[in-house]
Amino acid sequence: MNIFRLAGDMTHLASVLVLLLKIHTIKSCAGVSLKTQELYALVFATRYLDIVTDFISVYNTVMKLIFLGSSFSIVWYIRHHRVVRRSYDKDQDTFRHYLLMIPCMLLALFVHEKFTFKEVMWTFSLYLEAVAILPQLVLLQRTRNIDNLTGQYVFLLGAYRGLYIFNWIYRYFTEPHFVHWITWIAGVVQTLLYADFFYYYFESWKNNVRLQLPA
């Protein structure tokens, strides 16, 4: 494992911890999109089907369990926790999941490497992950005054995707036959979605003002 991959995984882990911290300690999910969280839960559930069939490493299995467990518990908190659910911006979080899920499923059925259940599900998870942040970005745009933790959560998620691209560049030059077009294209698309957010995030940081996305 190279440094970019490790840094990417750790950033991803940090993003989840920041979100859990906000929900668990402050008992608030204001500004957090349940739609995005549900899509992530689906992404991990469909991607990690191999957790029971292939053993890669202890690190790999543990991280998979963490991402599965945290994504489902975040969804549970927002939907069912008696205090947290009251802070959910239901009226603002109106992005429809199926607008993302159906095209991703169709694309996975037609564009994949092997036509097996596990492989199509894995490909679906890559496509879905690429666009799963959209409901969250739409919600941020509608929310005036984004709080620090929510801003940091999205920033860390974006940083994780960026680091994975460096990881692929590194692996491309150091490992023979490391060519994975589907993963790469989905990953680059996903990272580009954060470009606008990053711009405003750094602007607000530089000028020391509260993060606000233009409507």
Binding site: R5, D9, H12, D50, D54, I56, S57, N60, M63, K64, F67, E113, K114, W122, Y164, N167, R171, E175, H177, F178, V179, H180, T183
Partner: peptide, 10 residues
């Protein structure tokens, strides 16, 4: 290791 490149990622 024909198919594992990338599959070891999260």
């Amino acid at each position: 290791m024909e198919h594992t490149s990338g599959k070891d990622e999260l």
